[in-house]
Design a protein around this nucleic acid. Structure first.
Length: 589
RNA sequence: GCACUCGUAGCUCAAUUGGAUAGAGCGUCUGACUACGGAUCAGAAGGUUAGGGGUUCGACUCCCUUCGAGUGCACCA
């Protein structure tokens, strides 16, 4: 629609002798209840025209109609100039742009972006909150790719630390040599089980010490288990062969489990980072910062940065004994990433409880004068809540990722069997379909909500398959495919129709929004933008489908071909959109 | 206490980034040629956009304030 904007700029220049830029023209889709397809808001121009908004609209409208030959008319309602564009234009748009294979795919823009997501702890299995993280990260990566970025998906695995040692210790003490093979438990679940065991035994010891007269705080510090775990961590850091060996074994179990979960989820990574390898990074940068005067040293030798001028606090970046803290390591890892990839942007998909941390991290890197610091972005997302409140792993109120995915597939199976449309499917085809639909429902449910908003999940009532859902969109796609198959239709024939019905035009308009939607989703780092778009599109198609015959005998051949083209392009755009969300669409369901 | 985020129909979410009469789904009620696939479509009911001020041609959107919810405020990660 750039030509409309350009015409508007020209109109203001010639009519009112004022230079404005394209950004000053507020262009939007015309509301359904008015005639026309695009609307210019004319209020901002009245100060140039020195006339009322209606008259200004009339003048600009007349100018544009005269200037642009595909504009066939206009109307003005208050400060809104509604522009009517010819059907010939829209038909051309459908056949020349929308139907082309690279519609919605932008040429490489020469920029590189890293998206870090997932970043699990290796002491417990993934839960619903991790699913949201993974789906967001994967989808944002796909959206950026579609916008022409060269994307690197990274996973920073938290594979060390006291929490890992807790699982290890509990397994050592209470595990009796249990392995995934011996118990049939998925590796990450097995390790998670011992994390819970640790917590239970630890609490017991705390109670014992309390009855022996210690305060809560003392008991927490003095419980033998926690002391042992700390000793284990020290041994790990010292490279103790036995501890390292145990650590490697248990982590390998977890990774096997994660791989399986990731595969089910359909996410993947180009680059893994492990905190066991990065946790010592960053110290040299702290030195660098000390020299530059960005940091300062306190009497005890600890190193700090003063961010009070930026509305934040003072922050420790290195302990008095010279060891790192969390943020030290993140400073170092950020540098490592940059040295390795030279990315223009780096996205961190991390929950909103770390908003402050990333604010501080980015500010530190800016103050250190890192040229790439401006390209850092924290994609912060809200917690997933249950009706009972927050998920807590130790209280057993978490919704386990593997369980949930299995339940979704089961629901898909039940629903599909009830409808009885897959009688001729092979067992393998059926299973694949249940997976596609179950995951479609789950993924859509999580991605349709704006990332930063918290999300409510009720395990009691299963995720819907009707209405504003993934299966609804998948169904629309399958139905189109069915009709195309029946007609033996292939894209490629030229248009022979010259006029559009309202519903046909609305559908082309909706399809035409796709590239802009992809842009906006990337600008906002928001898969929800795509999710809501594709739902609107599916609804628009369904309405068209319901009211306009396509293959019926009474439909003239050229109209039939045209409606088939509309259907085929709708299926393609639906499929492409869903792919950006990491959701597959079936041919039949 | 301080900081950040959020608050839209009974419930779950939208609203073209400051634009027209705030839109969908679920749920409730009513319909759709004797199905080009009914996991669909049409219609009805449902709102003081948490409350109150302000900014302007125009505010769900920006500012102030009150209330409510969440998160953070470790020499843990």
């Amino acid at each position: 629609m750039n030509f409309i904007v350009e015409a508007a700029v020209k109109a203001v220049k010639e009519l009112y002798h004022t230079d404005i830029t394209a950004a000053d023209v507020n262009l939007q889709q015309t509301r359904k209840e008015f005639e026309g397809q695009v609307t210019i808001v004319t209020f901002p121009f009245v100060k140039f025209s020195r006339k009322g908004p209606e008259q200004t609209g009339q003048e600009i409208g007349a100018f544009i109609q005269n200037e642009v030959d595909v504009v066939s008319g206009f109307n003005v309602i208050k400060g809104f100039l509604n522009i009517v564009i010819t059907d010939a234009f829209w038909i051309g748009q459908l056949y020349n742009e929308i139907a082309s294979t690279d519609f919605g795919v932008f040429a490489p823009n020469g920029q590189k972006v890293m998206v870090e997501y997932s970043s699990p702890n290796t002491n417990k299995p993934l839960h619903l909150g991790h699913i949201r993280n993974n789906l967001l990260g994967y989808s944002v990566a796909e959206i950026l790719k579609a916008n022409g970025y060269d994307v690197i998906k990274a996973n920073l695995v938290n594979d060390r630390g006291i929490h890992i040692c807790k699982s290890m210790l509990a397994w050592q003490l209470f595990g009796n040599g249990e392995t995934p093979e011996s118990s049939g438990l998925k590796g990450d679940h097995l390790v998670g089980k011992y994390y819970v065991v640790f917590d239970k035994e630890y609490k017991k010891q705390i109670e014992e010490l309390k009855t022996a007269g210690q305060t809560e705080d003392e008991a927490k510090k003095n419980a033998p288990l926690i002391i042992e775990a700390q000793q284990m961590l020290e041994k790990w850091e010292a490279g103790d062969a036995e501890v390292i060996s145990l650590w490697e074994t248990m982590n390998s179990w977890v990774y096997a489990g994660f791989d399986q979960t990731y595969k089910q989820l359909g996410v993947d990574f180009d680059q893994y980072y492990y905190e066991s390898k990065t946790y010592l990074l960053g110290k040299d940068i702290i030195d660098e910062g000390l020299q530059k005067g960005v940091f300062y040293k306190k009497e005890d030798g600890s190193v700090w940065i003063d961010l009070t001028a930026d509305g934040l606090d003072e922050k420790l970046v290195l302990r008095a004994n010279g060891t790192s803290v969390y943020i030290t390591q993140d400073v170092g890892t950020a540098q490592l990433k940059y040295d390795q990839y030279n990315a223009d942007k780096s996205i961190y998909v991390v929950g909103n409880e770390q908003d402050y941390h990333f604010k501080v991290l980015f500010l530190i890197l800016q103050k250190l004068g890192k040229s790439w610091a401006n390209g850092l972005y924290h994609l912060s997302y809200g917690m997933v809540d249950l009706p009972s409140g927050k998920m807590k792993s130790r209280e057993g109120t978490v919704v386990d990722a593997d369980d949930l995915m299995a339940e979704m597939e089961q629901t898909a199976k039940t629903q599909t069997e009830e409808l009885g449309k897959t009688a001729d499917f092979s067992e393998e085809e059926k299973n694949k379909l249940y997976h596609t639909i179950g995951m479609g429902a789950l993924k859509y449910f999580l991605l349709k909500v704006e990332p930063k908003k918290r999300l409510l999940f009720d395990p009691g009532e299963s995720i819907d398959f009707q209405g504003h859902t993934g299966p609804f969109i998948q169904y629309t796609h399958a139905r189109i495919k069915s009709i195309l198959k029946r007609a033996g239709f292939e894209l490629g024939k030229p248009a022979t129709v010259t006029e559009l019905d309202t519903m046909e035009r609305d559908l082309i308009l909706a399809l035409n929004q796709f590239p802009e939607t992809i842009n906006q989703a990337a600008r906002d780092y928001s898969p929800a933008v795509v999710a809501n778009y594709v739902y609107e599109l599916a609804k628009t198609y369904n309405k068209f489908y319901q009211e306009k015959p396509i293959l019926k005998d009474e439909v003239p051949e050229d109209v039939k071909q045209f409606r088939l083209t509309l259907s085929a392009t709708s299926a393609k755009v639906i499929s492409k959109s869903m792919k950006l969300l990491g959701i597959d669409v079936p041919e039949r369901m």
